[in-house]
Amino acid sequence: RAAQGRAYGNLGNTNYLLGNFRKAVMFHEQRLLIAKEFGDRPAERRAYSNLGNSFIFLGEFEMAAEYYKRTLQLARQLKDRAVEAQSCYSLGNTYTLLQDYGKAIDYHLKHLTIAQELNDRVGEGRACWSLGNAYTALGNHDQAMHFAEKHLEISREVGDRS
């Protein structure tokens, strides 16, 4: 049964990479059931994250947000700061797709805090870029300028010309 769980996860991932997102969801849901059966929380966490990603490409952003929230919850329980940061980044982007810029900003700020804590300059740059765009969408140009300047500074530092 445990091997079956891993096989479902691999089938979900393979279908995802092939662009078969409906099938990917089906397999990751099966993987999730088995992870829960075994009380395997890291596997449960992976399934949530994989499901969130699949729903993004199905255009079902509300569903994606729900799964990313569960990913975030488990990442916190498992004390995995890197995954917590990634979940916040995903949630920020998902709420941007949903055009809920207030929530997008909340999550991008959370991502920024963790990226700074982990000394992840690339992550920090992404967070600033995203925040600049979200504040622009809200018409808050002072904050947008602040984050655009930080984005430029970090991009120069990491040598990202684009």
């Binding site: 994989n50 990603n53 490409f57 941007t96």
Partner: peptide, 26 residues
């Protein structure tokens, strides 16, 4: 509003490009 929507797309597009290849391995 339309212009702002276009502006916000670039950072999200970049994220989605990375997401395409992002799977959590067993």
């Amino acid at each position: 509003v339309q212009r702002m929507h276009l502006i916000q797309v670039d950072s999200v597009q970049r994220w989605m490009e990375d997401l395409k290849w992002m799977t959590e391995c067993e």
